[in-house]
Design a protein around this nucleic acid. Structure first.
Length: 847
RNA sequence: GCGGGUAUGGUGGAAUUGGUAGACACGCUAGAUUUAGGUUCUAGUGGCGCGAGCUGUGGGGGUUCAAGUCCCUCUACCCGCACCA
């Protein structure tokens, strides 16, 4: 008996899979499965989150492959992004060089994990042969009116003279310079995702293989609401203020109107009114993203203007306030303090009237002297809607507004258009030329791709493309005059919005081969982190709707199945100084841990998401080197359901490793059992055979449902059962041999290297890989038992168990149950009032 | 504040349509063989009790012959979004 040499075995099989193109998709696709994990950003090395993500996908891909599906399981690189630029600044090297070096390292790591990818489809999004297609897509969006320019605010670092991403703003200051971040208006490109708000919302209904949580998040993000648009006439200026409300039923309770600080009327008034100007200045500087706004008091300033109520003869003062969102609705709201907490606070602060317009069924107005009445009620003090409930009041007010032309029914969406401009180097150039005479001119298709220049310098602050001496200089495609290129690049969500389409035909001259997209898409199972539940998934969905509109394809929803995995967590450790200590810096001593370097005791903290800042990370490379890929894969899939958080522990990993060694020994010992007959086995052998078939059946079902942790538990049960067999008995050893074959096939998606090696040992070297050997199929004849054990309850408590024939009649079961010693004892001579027999489950006796 | 989720032994977690709670593993305890590389094997392991037994799925209440599962209510924690009118 030999020891299991995982290092030798794992690299051996990785080579064989690679040489034989085992994971190459054939495009035959009569029974296809497109399995996709979110492609990684090449940040340097794999972390445990990657391992979990890719292991989940790999199990499914290998399972489907064994079942005979033509499997598309590709991987690539989301290669544009800010970290590459930061690294370039730090190391004085090129972002591309850094990126490709990382790709090389991570690719090697993926291969050493034994992930079954079709590497012939690999690509990196920073390759011009990839990004030229999205430049064309953008131009098609532009031609179809789905891309436009508008002014929008960015985070501006006045010291570095550069735009900051949200994550580069820390406590309102630039992360590097520490300068207070300013808001600056820049003209930027936007995609009209709002045009598809309704389709994207409706589409969610069809995505029944997505987690409800993610669907809900997308629904909320789109934020559809029903209400009315109301026009208030401004007496002094003759203007009209448009207001959107979901509660037109509270219009009779309106006692003021509040405008956002950058509402046109606010700006207009500020020119003459210094109080208003000062107020706007104060609140614009504050920004909007801070949590400080939470605690801040609702403040405002009177413009002196009065608006006329559209349904009453009543004047309403107009204020500028700090609590109105400027880019939602119209940036103006009517305040009904009696029935809105924010308006209530504002009214109290500014001594404005609080008009209660809701009451109980008898028409008694609610008490609003202490707080607003938020409950639903019947309209009171409300003219023509008095006595109506909420829904009827809303209807009635809208009808009246429409009759008088002072308002209309309106549906609103919270979703905003997608700003795609980034003032960065390491991204896809936006293919637009600005000509003094012709204006905005798209780059002609035959001039694509617009490539990034290689000779780029990060010495000067600001956008390197803008600073490049010659790159932006060009000629106008229309008039041939001197012109300038757009120096902004795309948001990197652009690349990830269509890469899954590219995988169907990664070497096509077009963005994708339409037939192949139709063959492979939608992605049958997409797997990734929940952090992408909204933006990435929404943008990718939008892209498909938009591409369809531009005639690229017929596909609408790209991801049929979605699975969001949980985080990988680990215990946290602190030393006596209260500093975080990493798990490889400590050792066990007695019942606790001590720090390696000092021998001082370690305080064990709660388990939290692995993060560098808490130093509770475990490097997958270390695990692969020490225990092998199979152990890492098996463990990371075994303890928790995929969608929940996973707790990494050394002990758990060792458990997986011990199991692998055990399987190795067991299966290797079965190799000499050559002939085995299973048809007529009896007794223990038959029972074991049944367990084998039942395990095949339940694991197949578990894998369909992503219950990998349960599948692994079943595998261990099967292993335990096989270990109990007596190999000196011919029948039992035959069943043992058969069971070992099934076991390694069932294990193959989880521990592919171990399974391949053992399969070769059992079946001889001429056999195909275990993946091609097919998925075991349970024999239905062995799934049923001819006897069964029923629990017997007396007054709701289990008192005994009886064994009956499977086809026993209710009467027989009753008789048997009543005759049982334990049951008799607990009946205490009383007669049963009622006996309930649930077939195959339980007997319940009531006395 | 809104939306979503979770709560089961010392730990991670199992448990079709309500039907034997704690599968499987980690850890722990005892024993055996002794491991030549991180052993392997056997037995035990929710709590209380010597025992028959009692009790037990975050707390309280309910429906039912029967509740981890269904209903009401409360609590704690986690995630996402947030002055969205």
């Amino acid at each position: 008996m030999s020891l299991y040499n995982f290092k030798k075995v794992e690299s051996k099989w990785q080579d064989i899979w690679h040489k034989n193109h085992v994971f190459k998709a054939t495009n035959k696709a009569d029974k296809k499965a497109f399995i996709l994990e979110m492609f990684p950003y090449p940040s340097g090395r794999l972390h445990m989150g990657h391992v979990r993500n890719y292991a989940l996908g790999d199990v499914l891909a290998r399972f489907r492959m064994a079942q005979g599906y033509d499997v598309l399981h590709p991987i690539g690189w989301d290669a544009f992004g800010l970290p590459a630029e930061n690294a370039a600044i730090e190391n004085k090297s090129h972002p591309g060089k850094w990126t490709y070096k990382n790709i090389e390292v991570m690719k090697k790591q993926m291969q050493s994990l034994g992930l079954g990818y079709d590497w012939s489809r690999e690509f990196a999004t920073c390759d011009p042969s990839y990004y030229k297609h999205e430049q064309k897509m953008f131009l098609d969006f532009y031609k179809n009116g789905m891309a436009y320019k508008k002014k929008s605010q960015v985070n501006w670092d006045p010291v570095e003279n550069t735009v900051l991403a949200n994550e580069q703003v820390v406590d309102g200051k630039g992360w590097r310079s520490g300068a207070i971040v300013q808001k600056k208006e820049l003209s930027q490109w936007f995609l009209k995702i709002t045009d598809f708000a309704e389709e994207l919302l409706q589409g969610i209904e069809k995505l029944d293989k997505w987690p409800d949580k993610v669907r809900a998040m997308q629904r909320n993000w789109i934020g559809k609401s029903y209400g009315a648009s109301i026009h208030f006439h401004v007496k002094e200026t003759g203007d009209s203020v448009g207001v959107y409300t979901t509660r037109p039923d509270t219009l009779f309770g309106a006692s003021f109107i509040v405008l956002a600080t950058d509402h046109p009327i606010s700006k207009q008034v500020s020119e003459k009114n210094s109080d208003v100007a000062a107020f706007i200045k104060k609140w614009q500087a504050m920004g909007t993203s801070q949590k400080a706004l939470d605690t801040v008091e609702k403040a405002g300033v009177d413009t002196g203007l009065k608006a006329k109520s559209p349904i009453e003869d009543r004047d309403i003062p107009i204020y500028v306030a700090n609590y109105v969102v400027s880019d939602y609705g119209t940036g103006a709201v009517f305040g009904c303090p009696a029935h809105d907490e924010r308006d209530y606070e504002f009214a109290k602060n500014h001594d404005l009237p609080i008009i209660c317009v809701k009451g109980d069924k008898e028409g008694n107005a609610f008490d609003v002297s202490e707080k607003p009445a938020m409950e639903e009620g019947i309209s009171v003090n409300s003219g023509f809607v008095n006595g109506l409930d909420k829904a009827a009041s809303i209807e009635s007010v809208i009808k009246e507004l429409e009759k008088s032309g002072k308002g209309s029914r309106q549906t609103n969406y919270r979703l905003r258009d997608w700003g795609v401009s980034r003032q960065r180097y390491w991204g896809c150039p936006i293919p637009i030329i600005y000509c003094d005479d012709c204006g905005v001119v798209p780059v002609p298709e035959n001039q694509l791709p617009v490539q990034l220049p290689d000779d780029v310098s990060f010495d000067t602050p600001g956008n390197p493309l803008e600073n490049h001496p010659t790159w932006k200089e060009t000629t106008c495609p229309k008039c041939k005059a001197k012109a300038k290129r757009e120096t902004d690049t795309f948001d990197t969500f652009f690349e990830s919005s269509w890469y899954f389409l590219r995988f169907a035909s990664p070497h096509s001259d077009q963005a994708f081969d339409r037939d192949l997209v139709e063959k492979w898409l939608p992605v049958d199972q997409y797997i990734g982190g929940v952090e992408h539940a909204i933006l990435h998934l929404l943008y990718a969905r939008f892209f498909c709707y938009a591409l369809k509109k531009c005639g690229y394809m017929d596909l609408e929803e790209p991801f049929k199945g979605m699975m969001t995995q949980g985080m990988v967590c680990h215990e946290t450790y602190k030393n006596e100084l209260g500093k975080w200590v990493s798990p490889d810096q400590i050792r066990k001593e007695g019942s606790g841990y001590v720090e390696n370097s000092t021998g001082a005791p370690i305080k064990v903290g709660s388990s939290e998401k692995m993060s560098k800042s808490k130093k509770n990370v475990v490097d997958p490379q270390f695990i692969i080197d020490e225990y092998g890929a199979d152990a890492a894969r098996l463990f990371i899939l075994s303890d928790s359901p995929p969608e929940r958080d996973f707790e990494w522990s050394e002990a758990g990993l060792q458990g997986a490793w011990r199991y692998i060694k055990r399987v190795w020994k067991m299966v290797e010992s079965a190799k000499d059992i050559k002939s085995f007959k299973l048809d007529s086995v009896q007794g223990t052998a038959l029972a074991a055979l049944k367990i084998i078939h039942k395990t095949i059946d339940s694991i197949t079902k578990d894998l369909e449902l992503f219950h990998y942790n349960k599948a692994i538990a079943r595998l261990r049960e099967l292993t335990n059962s096989l270990a109990d067999l007596d190999l000196k008995n011919t029948e039992e050893s035959g069943v043992y041999r058969f069971g070992c074959g099934a076991l390694i096939k069932l294990l193959a998606p989880f521990t592919p290297h171990l399974s391949e090696e053992l399969w070769q040992i059992l079946e001889g070297s001429e056999k195909e890989t275990i993946i091609k050997a097919g998925w075991p199929i349970a024999n239905q004849d062995y799934l049923s038992e001819n006897t069964m054990t029923l629990a017997v309850q007396v007054n709701g408590k289990v008192r005994s168990k009886i064994t009956v024939a499977e086809d026993a009649s209710k009467e027989d079961i009753e008789t048997l149950a009543l005759a049982d010693d334990q049951v008799e004892k607990h009946m205490q001579g009383q007669k049963p009032k009622k006996i309930i027999v649930v077939p195959k489950r339980i007997v319940s006796i009531v006395i």
